[in-house]
Design a binder for these strands. Structure first.
Lengths: 213, 213, 213, 213
DNA sequence: AATGAATGAGGGTTCATTCAT
DNA sequence: CATGAATGAACCCTCATTCAT
C-alpha cells in the first residue's frame, strides 16, 4: 500500500509527499469544476498550503496538469502491469481486460477527469496524454493480441486496427458513462455481456451466415 | 417538421444571419483554443462586430456555447434524417451508418470541438449535450436496430445495450482521431473495414469456436 | 387640473406631452434606484418609447435631470403661489407654511428624490437646485417675514438669518423622514406641534427667563 | 470602551494602516465627484496601490462606502464623547452643542459627503447611516435634554420631538451650507446667534404675546 | 522552504449615445 | 419624428504570479 520508493533521503520524501498532496488537491478540483474554474487559491486551500508554496513545486498552473498526468500514468502502469502475461486464451484475456479497464477508471477517475477538463484546449497536454497514456495502452493491446492472432484464436489479422477499435470502444464507453447515460451508468454488467457477445460472435446472426456459406 | 423559414421579415432574417455569423466565429475560436482561452473580444473581432453586439444576441458568453450546441443539433438532424428509413438490410445499414457518422463529423467538427472544450467543466452543457445530441442519436440507433433484430438479421436481443456499444465505439473513434492517433487519422478505411468485420463476424475465429464445441 | 397652457399648437402640445411622459418615467426611476443605477433603456421602457426617442427630446441623460428639476420648479411655484399674500398674522402664517411645505413634498416627492439622488455628484445640478428652488424659497420666506417683523410680531430682526434657520429646519425634517426616523415618519403632527411651540415660545422655560429679568 | 490598540502585531497594524489609506482616498474621491463617477482605478491611484489591492481589503466597491461610514462613525463617537456630561445648564449645553456639531462637520466633511453622494440610491447604506449615526445622535440629544427638562430649564416636555427638531435643524443647516447658500456659508456666527435666540426665546415677540393675552 | 500581500493585465459585461432605416 | 441595433469605451473584479519577509 505504501509507495515502493524506500531509499529516498528524508528531505526528498517530504518534498515528494507535499507535491503529491498538492497534485491530489488540484486533481480533485479540476475534476469537479474544470481547470479554468479552479483558482490557485482554491488549490492552495484544499492542499492546506499557501498560494506561493505551489510555485515551489510547480512552475505554473499548467504544470499542475502535467503533474496529474504523470501520477495517472504511473498509477495505470502499476494497475495494468499484470496484464502483460495473460494473453494465451482469448476468452480469458478479454474478460480480464474489461476488469482491468474498469479498475483503472475507478482508481483514477478524478485524475482522468482533471485532464479531460482541459484536454481540448491544451495541445501540449493532448499530445502528452496520447503519447504517455493512450498510445502505450494501444501498444500493450497490440502486444497482447498478436499471440492470440498467431495461434489462430483471433481471426482479424489487422492487429493494429483491432487494437484501435477496442480502445475506441473503451474510451467511448467511459464517455457515455460520464454523460450520465442511464444504461451504461447503472447497468454496466449488461454492457459487458453485450460487449463480450459481440467480440466473440459479432452482431450478425450466424444462421444467416451459415446459410450464406 | 421543418420550420416555415421562407417568409421571415427582413429584420428577422438579418438578425438570424448575424447571430449565426457570431456563432460561427465563436465556434471556430472555441474549437481552436478552448472556451476559456477565447475572449469575447476575440469573438467579436472574428465575427466582425463590436463586442457589445454579442450581447444583443446572446445573454452571456456561456449562452454562445448553448447556441453552438443548438446549431450542431439542427445540423445533425438534417444530415441524419435520411437514415430513418434504411434499416432493412443489416449490411447496408451499418455501411450507411459509418458514412453518415463520418459526414456529421466532417461538417460539424468545429462545433463539436467547441462544445467538447467546455463539456467537462460545465454540467449544464454536459446535460444538454447528452439530451439533445447523444441520447437522440442512441434512440435513433435503437429504432433502426429493432427491425433488424426482429427479422433475425441481428442476433443480439439487447437492442439498448447494442446501441450503447455502437455509440461508444463511434465516440471513442472520434476521440482517438482527435488525439492524433496515426492509424485512425490517416487510415480511416482500414478502421472501417475492421469495424465491419467485427460487427459481422466477431473477433474470435469461428473455426476454433466450432472445434471447441 | 389640466395645465393652463391652452393656446399651444397641437404639434407642440403633443411634443410637450411626450417630453413630460419621459420626464415622469425618468423621475420615478431615478427616485427609486438613483440616477446612475437607472439606464436609458429603463427610462425608455417605462416611458413606452424607444431609446433613441429620448434623444429627440433631451440632449443626454444628465439633461433629463435638469428637466425633472424644471418640472419640480414649476410645480412648486404653482403650489406656493397663494402664500405670497397671507403674511399678516404670524400664527396664521407659520401654520399655513407648515401645510404648504408638506403639500409640496407630497406632490413632488418623486421629483425631489430623483434630483437628490444625484445632487452630491453633480455640481451643475446642485447650483441649479439652489438657484431655482432653494434660494427662491428662502427669498419668499424673507419677503413674508419682513412685514411680520415690521409690525412687531417677530422679534428677530435678522430676517435673512431667520429665513435660513426655518429653511434648514424644513430641509432637515424632510431628510429625517427620508431616513425613516420613526417619530418624524409616523407622528408628523407631534413634530408640527413641537415646532410651533418652539417657534412661538422658544425652548427655554419662561419662568426662569422672567426670574432672570 | 476604547479598543486595546496599542499592542497589535506589526502585520495587523500595517494592514489596518493600508485599509485606512485606501478608505481616505476613496472618501476624498467619492466626496469630490460622487460614488458612481469614481472608478476603482481612481481610488487605487489616489491610494497609491494597485487596483487588485483594494480587493484584498474590501469585498467590492460598495464595501468601501461601508468602510467610510464606519470610520465616520468612530470619529464622531470620539469627538462627541465629552458631550455626555455637560448637560446641567441649558445655555451652556446648547452653546457647546453648536460647537461640537461644527467640529464634527469640519473634521469629517469628506466622509460625510462621500456617503451622502450615494445615500439616496442605496437603501442599505441609508439604513446603516441612520442606525449608526443619525439615530445614536438623536438618542444622545434626548439623553442630554432630559435632565434639562427635568430640572425645569426646558419647557417642552416632548423630548423625543424636540430632539428631532434640533437634529433636523442641524442637518438642514449642513445641507444649506453644502448648497452654497452665502449667508450660511460665510456668516456662520450670524446663524448661530439667530439659532440661540430662537432656541431661547422663540420667534414671536413676547411683548405682543403678553399684550394679546 | 513557506508565506500571503501586492500586483496589474485582462476578462466579461454594461450602457449612453449614434444613425441608418 | 420614431426606432432599436450597433457601437466601444469604460467599468468592476479576478487571479496567476512574484517577492519581501
Amino acid at each position: 500500500m505504501s509507495e515502493a520508493k524506500p531509499e529516498l533521503p528524508r528531505r526528498e520524501r517530504q518534498s515528494a509527499a507535499r507535491a503529491n498532496q498538492i497534485l491530489d488537491a488540484a486533481a480533485a478540483l479540476f475534476a469537479e469544476r474544470g481547470f479554468h474554474r479552479t483558482t490557485t487559491r482554491d488549490i492552495a486551500e484544499a492542499a492546506d498550503v499557501a498560494e506561493g508554496t505551489l510555485y515551489n513545486y510547480f512552475a505554473n498552473k499548467d504544470d499542475l496538469l502535467i503533474g496529474v498526468l504523470q501520477r495517472l500514468s504511473e498509477s495505470i502502469e502499476t494497475i495494468s502491469a499484470p496484464m502483460y502475461q495473460i494473453s494465451t486464451d482469448a476468452r480469458a484475456y478479454f474478460t480480464a481486460l474489461l476488469e482491468v479497464i474498469q479498475s483503472v477508471q475507478e482508481q483514477n477517475l478524478v485524475r482522468i477527469l482533471a485532464i479531460l477538463s482541459e484536454i481540448m484546449a491544451n495541445a501540449e497536454l493532448r499530445a502528452r496524454f496520447y503519447s504517455q497514456l493512450v498510445d502505450p495502452g494501444i501498444q500493450a493491446l497490440e502486444r497482447n493480441l498478436k499471440p492470440l492472432t498467431a495461434n489462430g484464436q483471433i481471426r482479424q489479422a489487422d492487429t493494429a486496427g483491432l487494437a484501435r477499435l477496442l480502445a475506441s470502444f473503451f474510451i467511448g464507453l467511459f464517455f457515455l458513462e460520464l454523460l450520465g447515460d442511464p444504461v451504461v451508468s447503472n447497468d454496466r454488467n449488461r454492457i459487458d455481456e453485450v460487449s463480450l457477445s459481440v467480440i466473440f460472435d459479432g452482431i450478425i446472426a450466424k444462421n444467416q451466415e451459415d446459410q450464406s456459406r
